[in-house]
Design a protein around this nucleic acid. Structure first.
Length: 380
RNA sequence: GCCCUUGUAGCUCAGUCGGUAGAGCAACGGACUGUUAAUCCGUGUGUCCUAGGUUCGAGCCCUAGCGGGGGCGCCA
């Protein structure tokens, strides 16, 4: 048995080979001329492979004609150039084996679009949809690119603690980690907790950032990056906030501000370029079904030179724009989303890096410029 | 945390003035076809989110609760 993925079988190079594919039925169309089209997907690619199952197969009437969306099957057959539109290759089955049945009356996923809200109710089946499959593949691609990008530049991948006592720069509300018996404590109505009784004999939290550990490694090993789960207990109900997310933090000794900006720009471009090149089918799906214009927008990020602008000049651009903002633009305050969007989307029409922020709105340890009003970089 | 909005068939939704439930898709049956969100014909489908209240009568009005979505704030 020459096992193959759907991804491989869809490639022209596979024509002429006899392969065995295992996957889940997406759809079946019957021809009364005596054969059926079965589309199967195994997660290896966005597209399905079309299988031609001829009526002469032993289990055609008993099994193949009742295959429905969600069934898992194994198909063995020769890959041939497709006679129809829409696909380069197809498999002419010599055997189709039903591995797992799927009752169409009770299987929730249908051959149509489902809302994300509805799919969340079927969380165990979401990965079988085009959208979630594409997200998983693109995310995998990005993770791979992240490591490749830093490894090529001789950065060390450092693991920083998940459970920690440090609050970093007070970046956000933290999830407390404890082994104290909360039910018992509630019953006793204790006014002050004795953390000496806790697991670490002190308060502990899930990390909000590996920055502090990253910096001490950078000041010993030169260039490091962290990439791992991070937790924020913000009660923020927006699409841009997560309680749990993965964060990348490069920390470099002996880098000046220009070095930092060069790295950031190259990094962003690399991630985007790789995703477009390596996940083209998934990105085309997003562009068509989820967010029209996405590919053009990402290609623009990959192609453009990022604008690098001092904070003070950005304030000047905003104030002279004549644009009415919901939040006033004033030197010394942080920029709101609407200001950032104006700079990137309307004024410069490309990614923008702002630097030399007022020291009053940045962490205390940042390196102060000669003007004593703005800061350039971290303390390393 | 604040504000707005929504909950009806497996899914997406309509439901008028308060009078006892409806369309498309899916499913199922059939027709047709190298098809590809196939197409055409036919069939069935309900705890109208939950609990109270008003009323002769509530999917519809009122109150509370629960769930979903959006915006803002905080924040990344």
């Amino acid at each position: 048995m020459n096992k193959s993925s759907v991804k491989t079988a869809r490639h022209l190079d596979s024509i002429g080979q006899v392969l065995t594919l295992q996957g889940w039925v997406r759809t079946r169309r019957d021809s009364k001329a005596g054969f059926s089209f079965i589309e199967i997907n195994d997660g290896s690619s966005q597209g399905n492979i079309q299988v031609i199952a001829d009526g002469s197969l032993a289990n055609y009437e008993s099994t193949i004609k009742s295959l429905s969306t969600g069934c898992s099957i194994a198909v063995t057959g020769e890959v041939k150039a497709s006679g129809g539109q829409g696909q380069a290759t197809e498999v002419h089955a010599s055997a189709v084996e039903l591995i797992g049945e799927c009752d169409p009356e009770t299987y929730p996923l249908q051959k149509k679009r489902h809302s994300f809200e509805k799919l969340r109710e079927w969380a165990h089946l979401r990965p079988r949809t085009n959208t979630f499959g594409a997200v998983a593949r693109v995310r995998n691609c990005i993770c791979n690119s992240i490591h490749q990008f830093y490894q090529e530049r001789e950065f060390l991948y450092v693991h920083t603690p998940i459970i920690t006592a440090s609050d970093c720069e007070g970046a956000g509300a933290m999830f407390q980690v404890t082994t104290l018996n909360l039910d018992q404590i509630a019953k006793k109505q204790i006014e002050k907790l004795d953390f000496a009784q806790d697991f670490f004999q002190r308060r502990a939290y899930l990390t909000v950032s590996g920055q502090l550990e990253g910096e001490i490694y950078a000041t010993a090993l030169g260039k490091i990056y962290t990439f791992g789960p991070t937790f924020r207990a913000e009660n923020s109900n927006t699409s841009r906030h997560l309680a749990e997310f993965w964060m990348i933090e490069p920390e470099m000794a002996f880098y000046d501000l220009d070095d930092n900006m060069d790295l950031a720009e190259a990094f962003m471009k690399r991630i985007v370029t790789d995703a477009l090149a390596r996940c083209s089918e998934d990105m085309e799906f997003f562009d068509k079904q989820i967010e029209p214009g996405l590919i053009a927008s990402l290609q623009h990020v990959a192609d453009s030179s990022f604008v690098r602008l001092p904070y003070t000049e950005a304030i000047d651009v905003l104030q002279k724009s004549g644009k009415k903002f919901d939040y006033p633009v004033e030197w010394g305050t942080d920029l709101q989303s609407e200001h950032e969007r104006f700079l990137t989307e309307e004024h410069f029409k490309c990614p923008v890096i702002l630097f030399n922020y007022p020291k009053t709105i940045k962490p205390f340890y940042m390196f102060c410029n000669d003007d004593d009003k703005t800061v350039r970089r971290g303390s390393s």
